[in-house]
C-alpha cells in the first residue's frame, strides 16, 4: 500500500489525472487491446476529470480504446436526473472525450431486473479482461462505492439499501426532502474493486481524516470498508494535507519520506512539466 500525501485537493486532482494518463499511455491501447478503467462519481474526482478532459483536448490522451466501468448508480432515478450518476458521467466526462458509447458502462438503476443487471455488469467486467485501474473515492464513514459500514469485504455487484445517514447526507441534493432521496442503489462490491489490478483511492478534506486513519492505520474492518485495500497488492491512497489530520506523525513522516519515489510514478507522463508538484 502506498500513501501519497499532496498539498491540497487541486494537486491531488492533477496527480491523479497524470497517473491515469501515465497508466493508459504505458499500456498503449489499440484495436483489440483495450485499457479497462473503473471510475467513481462525486465531488472528489471532479478535478481529476477536468484535468483528463484537458489532456484529451491537448491531444495527449485518447479514450478511443478505453473501456470504463462506473462504481454505482441510484435505483429508480431517471437517467437524465441531475443527481443520477449517468447524468454526472455524461456531463462531467463522457461528452468531452472520444470514448465509444458502447464501451462506457454505468449500472442501470432502472433495469427491470436489478439482480440480473448486477450479474450482467460483473460478466461484462470479466469479458473485458478485468479492471486494470480502479479509481475510487471514500465517504466520511470509510465506504467505497455504496459499500457502507458493515458491507461484506468480499461482496460483488449488488442492490444495496442505503443507510439512513447516507440518505440524510444526500438529501441536500434532492431539495432537502429525504423522501425524494432514492433508498436503494446498485454498487460494485468491495470484492469487485479488489479484483482490479491496481486501485487508486482519492481522499481530500478534513472531514475524511478519520476515515483515512481507519483505512490505513488500523486493522482490516468491515465497518470501514476501504480498509480492505490494505490487503490489495497494488493500492495507492492519494490524499491532501487536510485529510492527514487524524494520522500519526510517524505515519505521515514515513510516507512523506517516500515522496520522491511517488513522484516517479507520474513522471513517465509526457509534457506538462511546467506544473511543479510537491
Amino acid at each position: 500500500m502506498r500513501l501519497i500525501i499532496l498539498e491540497d485537493a487541486d494537486v491531488v486532482a492533477d496527480w491523479a489525472a497524470r497517473f491515469v494518463l501515465q497508466r493508459i499511455t504505458q499500456f498503449a491501447p489499440g484495436p483489440g487491446r483495450r485499457f479497462v478503467l473503473g471510475l467513481p462519481t462525486g465531488g472528489t474526482p471532479l478535478g481529476m476529470y477536468r484535468r483528463l478532459i484537458q489532456f484529451h483536448k491537448e491531444g495527449r490522451l485518447s479514450f478511443q480504446y478505453v473501456t470504463t466501468f462506473n462504481m454505482d448508480e441510484y435505483v429508480g432515478l431517471p437517467r437524465d436526473h441531475p443527481e443520477s450518476y449517468h447524468y454526472y458521467m455524461w456531463n462531467e466526462f463522457f461528452k468531452h472525450i472520444d470514448i465509444d458509447p458502447a464501451q462506457a458502462h454505468v449500472l442501470d438503476g432502472n433495469a427491470p431486473d436489478l439482480v440480473l443487471e448486477c450479474t450482467r455488469f460483473e460478466r461484462l467486467i470479466a469479458q473485458a479482461g478485468g479492471v486494470r485501474l480502479f479509481v475510487g473515492g471514500i465517504g466520511p464513514d470509510g465506504h467505497i462505492a455504496f459499500n457502507e459500514p458493515g458491507s461484506s469485504l468480499v461482496s460483488r455487484t449488488r442492490v444495496k439499501t442505503l443507510a439512513y445517514d447516507t440518505l440524510e447526507a444526500n438529501k441536500r441534493f434532492f431539495g432537502n426532502d429525504i423522501s425524494k432521496v432514492p433508498r436503494q442503489a446498485l454498487t460494485v462490491g468491495v470484492g469487485t474493486v479488489m479484483d482490479a489490478r491496481e486501485v487508486m483511492i482519492l481522499i481530500t478534506g478534513a472531514h475524511k481524516a478519520l476515515a483515512l486513519a481507519k483505512a490505513v492505520e488500523e486493522g482490516v474492518n468491515h465497518m470501514w470498508t476501504v480498509s480492505a485495500f490494505q490487503q490489495h497488492a497494488q493500492t495507492l491512497f492519494v490524499c491532501d494535507e487536510d485529510a492527514t489530520q487524524e494520522l500519526r506523525v510517524k505515519t505521515v513522516k514515513y510516507f512523506k519520506a517516500l515522496s520522491d519515489e511517488h513522484q516517479k510514478m507520474i513522471e513517465g507522463a509526457p509534457a506538462g512539466e511546467a506544473l511543479v508538484l510537491h
Binding site: 437517467r79 437524465d80 447524468y87 463522457f94 461528452k95 465509444d100 458509447p101 462506457a104
Partner: peptide, 9 residues
C-alpha cells in the same frame, strides 16, 4: 445527447 449516448450508443 445523454440518451443517445447511453441508449443508442
Amino acid at each position: 445527447p445523454e440518451q443517445v449516448f447511453y441508449l443508442e450508443q
